[in-house]
């Protein structure tokens, strides 16, 4: 049952990302349509980073994206008939990589929020 829950969490993360990424992509790639001026300038990036709403948005989005991405990547790697020991190594490696990504991303988000 554990693997079913992990897989369901992958779907759930995907669904969360669907909405978060819609907003994220609209900000940077459809900015003219939504009247967002220079979304990549330091001032506008920091203006967003220092709102509590965006803090929550980034933290949830980051965790969901790392989980969804690395779970999907692991599924692809597992389909290559690697053999048991290599599969364990891949799983461990992806866990470490995921933790590093979440930690770096969260640290940056919180630091930018507190500035």
């Amino acid at each position: 049952m554990n693997s079913v829950r992990c897989w369901f969490l992958f779907l759930l993360a995907g669904l969360i990302l669907f909405f978060i990424m819609a907003a994220h992509m609209a900000t940077f790639h459809l900015s003219h349509f939504f009247g967002i001026h220079e979304p990549l300038s330091y001032d506008s990036v920091m203006a967003r980073s220092q709102q509590a709403l965006f803090l929550i948005f980034y933290l949830i989005g980051l965790s969901a994206a790392v989980y969804h991405g690395l779970y999907g990547f692991r599924r692809i790697l597992m389909e290559l008939s690697l053999g048991r020991s290599l599969e364990k190594l891949v799983t461990a490696g992806l866990c470490v990589a995921g933790s590093v990504m979440v930690l770096v991303g969260m640290a940056a988000t919180v630091m930018a929020f507190l500035q």
Binding site: M1, S3, R75, M78
Partner: peptide
């Protein structure tokens, strides 16, 4: 059957 089908190289692929 769920146990046999869900673990390892099972239904999630």
């Amino acid at each position: 059957r769920i146990e046999a089908a869900a673990e390892g190289h099972g239904i999630h692929h």
